[in-house]
């Protein structure tokens, strides 16, 4: 059985990246991860024996993020404006498109953003996402549909299809 220290050493960076994509803030992601790992540490023996620890920790980060967002939502500023990018070369436009997309991801409802991270970063299938988020697979599809629709509608109209392809 893998030890807590071995797991954190090997998978800690990946877990931090996952948390960062969820919340969009490096320091907050570290805070969430530490909180989760502190809880996991106290029950490591049972967790490591019961299921792959990474799946457990990922689920815990997700729930910690959703919980945190509920507590802190009233103090957050919604990103309503995204940077303007004058005409530049292809690479610069691609960077601009990604910057704009990152900003727009921050405007999505928390569950929609979580679904996109789980689907497009971790490549998880919808039933697995549904299990993690705690909803039906059909609801996952609805969240993703609405999130993508919102992003599509708000992404600057000056971006060409080539820019959008990243």
């Amino acid at each position: 059985m893998i030890s807590f220290d071995e797991f954190v050493t090997a998978r800690g960076p990946a877990m931090l990246r996952f948390g960062y994509l969820m919340c969009g803030d490096r320091h907050l992601a570290e805070d969430i991860l530490q909180e989760v790992l502190a809880k996991v540490y106290r029950r490591w023996g049972r967790i490591a024996r019961a299921e792959p620890p990474e799946a457990y920790v990922r689920r815990a980060i997700l729930h910690q993020y959703l919980s945190w967002r509920r507590r802190r939502a009233s103090t957050e500023a919604v990103v309503a404006e995204v940077p303007e990018h004058p005409d530049r070369g292809l690479m610069a436009d691609q960077v601009a498109a990604r910057d704009e997309m990152w900003a727009l991801l921050g405007t999505l409802p928390r569950v929609q953003r979580a679904v996109l991270v789980l689907r497009y970063y971790l490549d998880l299938p919808d039933p697995e996402i549904a299990d993690l988020v705690g909803c039906a697979p059909a609801t996952v599809r609805v969240h993703a549909f609405r999130a993508l629709g919102a992003l599509r509608a708000r992404l600057s109209t000056h971006l060409t299809a080539e820019d959008r392809s990243g």
Partner: peptide, 20 residues
């Protein structure tokens, strides 16, 4: 194209986060 942009954006941003 939007799904692809979401994917590359998330991957790019994740790569910016170093080991804690």
């Amino acid at each position: 194209d939007i799904e692809h942009l979401v994917r590359v954006t998330l991957t790019d941003r994740a790569a910016e986060v170093g080991a804690p």
